[in-house]
Nucleic acid binder design. Structure first.
Length: 553
RNA sequence: UGGGGUGUAGCCAAGCGGUAAGGCAGCGGGUUUUGAUCCCGUCAUGCGAAGGUUCGAAUCCUUCCACCCCAGCCA
């Protein structure tokens, strides 16, 4: 399907209609993360949505940190988030923005509500406040502090701001309706006392606005036209609108909600991801097994693959669970088209070519990519002793096995056909070497005797290869829904999510590749050079699709 | 017993009264010096259920059912 045929999602339909109706000259969206953790794949969906909408409709998208809770936030997260959004390939309009830079304005709007008799200082303790709030099916009751005079409220609010009260002793609440069916409308809290150092404003404040009181007003200040958030905020919308209607804001943004991304075999909850990091189940926020943008980056996923994935899954209001196979498809698709090929033997088994002279070597050339001639050719050295993968040899096998078997032939990728003669074993019966023969004149052609090779295997010359470590990553969880119901996600961590292989043997060209550089190790999968190791280490991004694996078992 | 939201194939998802797009996964076949890629074919008489309106319903109406979110001084 060509791009112009692609159906519009519900948000695109709304925006298109708004623009056609002349409601806006230009749309402005925003991506508003709280800097309390690293961004994960679910955020990637939101980023692609918000920035994508701005791109599609020639509008703008802001990057704004929703930093209203200093207790959970950290500057480290701000830097990481900025890097991740940039890496995905998006550019925000103007400078990075902070909710905290609007604190003065927010405070004066709080005063405005107090003056209008629409907000009051409440002394209820957190426990009492909960009791007064009622339940899902029973109305709450009014706080005994609800009818304080405007003057008293003004005075108390000023004293809260001045730091005269303890944390938890007072809050500022909107005066709406304690019997409302929507809990968010039962006199929601606007300000709470937090005597905390803030990463942006330092010690300037000891009261901080809540999400509800801050978010819509931030949107209004920035002239956001379409404020897009996830489904769980849908019942905050009436409150969002209440503030917009009761405050002298410079614009009237509208909130829309979409279904957040859920991925099977994956956990996407900042709290749980933080726990994996803090309790050392993984190596950090950018551990290649983490579903964080930083993790995918280090794993070898490309920005294009993540954007393609977000494009594939669509945007709707239904909450489903996307099959992680879709993500894997997106990265395979990108890397298949773009990653140069190389050969790497993961589990080396020596093969001696008995009819190939000991002193002889040949330099062979191989294409950088089978379907692309714009990628440079590579040079391979062929010699008497080579390594093949232990999995590619069996003393005997049935007809389905298309690799090296004694008495049978196999094609060495980009080189000769060989035929195996015998397996050499150690005292315990382990195969330690295979002795084989090169079939003459089979470089780029079939043997003259007409006996073709059944399969193709990869190899490297024993004296002309690079030795390095390879990290084989697999999914972090072995349960499709590790945190469903009352399951403990930690019980479903895949013990084989990381397998470290040392002394893997790669072709010579791999000796000096850039950090992050991606390759397809032919017949194995896609790998990229790890960004945190000074030594040569390759991370497996994803294996090749493997129909043999199904036949084999 | 409250409020909000969602139900189209194993999964994601088009569809907006004119007779069920597309992708992922799967299955079958072809090409192949990667058991990859690529190509071809196949995969919902059916749209949560039951009624109704209509020449015609996944689309409109009624009732019912299932699932998700909300009782933080988190976002």
């Amino acid at each position: 399907m060509t791009p112009e045929e692609k159906p519009l999602n519900f948000l695109e339909q709304i925006i298109k209609a708004d623009l056609e109706a002349g409601k806006y000259d230009k749309i402005i969206t925003r991506f508003p993360p709280e800097p309390n953790g690293y961004l994960h794949i679910g955020h990637a969906k939101s980023i692609c949505l918000n920035f994508g909408l701005a791109e599609t409709f020639e509008g703008e998208c802001n990057l704004r940190f929703d930093d209203t809770n200093p207790a959970k936030e950290d500057d480290e997260y701000i830097q990481a988030i900025i890097e991740d959004v940039s890496w995905l390939g998006f550019q925000w309009a103007g400078e990075v923005r902070y909710a905290s830079s609007y604190f003065d304005q927010l405070y004066s709007w709080a005063v405005h509500l107090v003056e209008a008799g629409k907000a009051y200082v409440c002394d209820l303790s957190p426990d009492d406040a909960r009791r007064y709030r009622g339940t899902l099916t029973e109305a709450g009751k009014n706080s005994p502090f609800r009818d304080r005079s405007v003057e008293e409220n003004l005075h108390l609010l000023a004293r809260m701001k001045a730091g005269e009260f303890d944390e938890g002793s007072k809050v500022l609440r909107a005066k709406i309706d304690m019997a409302h069916g929507n809990m968010n409308m039962r006199d929601p809290i606007l300000y709470r006392i937090r005597k905390q150092h803030h990463h942006q404003t330092g010690n300037a404040w000891c009261i901080y606005p809540t999400y509800d009181f801050a978010h819509g007003q931030e949107d209004a200040i920035e002239g956001i036209t379409h404020s897009i958030c996830t489904l769980e905020f849908a019942d905050h919308r009436p409150l969002y609108n209440w503030f917009i209607e009761n405050l002298p804001v410079p614009a009237k943004p509208v909130q829309y909600e979409f279904g957040r991304l859920n991925l099977n075999y994956t956990v996407t909850s900042k709290r749980k991801l933080k726990q994996l990091v803090d309790e050392n189940f993984v190596d950090g926020w950018d551990d290649p097994r983490m579903p964080t943008i930083a993790g995918y980056r280090r794993r070898g996923y490309t920005p294009a693959s993540l954007r393609k994935f977000c494009d594939m899954i669509g945007v709707t209001k239904s909450d489903g669970v996307v099959d992680v196979a879709m993500l894997e498809h997106a990265i395979r698709d990108d890397l298949d088209k773009n990653a140069p090929r190389a050969m790497c033997v993961l589990k080396p088994l020596k093969v001696t070519l008995t009819n190939y002279p000991e002193s002889k070597t040949e330099t062979l050339t191989a294409p950088g990519h089978p379907q692309r001639d714009d990628l440079p050719m590579r040079e391979l050295v062929f010699a008497r002793e080579i390594f093949i993968d232990a999995e590619d040899f069996r003393e005997e096998a049935n007809k389905k096995y298309k690799r090296l078997v004694i008495g049978k032939r196999v094609r060495l990728r980009n080189a000769y056909i060989i035929e195996a003669d015998e397996a050499v074993k150690d005292g315990k019966g382990n195969i330690i070497e295979v002795r084989a023969r090169v079939i003459e004149d089979t470089l780029g052609k079939d043997p003259e005797d007409g006996v073709k090779a059944k399969g193709v295997i990869h190899w490297v010359a024993a004296q002309h290869c690079v030795d390095f470590e390879v990290r084989l990553y697999d999914r972090l969880f072995n349960d499709p829904a590790p945190d469903a119901g009352d399951k403990n996600f930690l019980d479903h961590i895949n013990p084989e999510s990381l397998q470290v292989l040392t002394h893997c043997k790669g072709e010579p060209g791999l000796s000096n590749v850039e950090i992050g550089m991606a390759f397809q190790f032919e017949r194995e999968g896609y790998f990229c050079r790890d960004s945190r190791s000074t030594e040569l280490v390759f991370n497996r991004t994803i294996g090749l699709r493997d129909s043999w694996a199904k036949i084999a078992d």
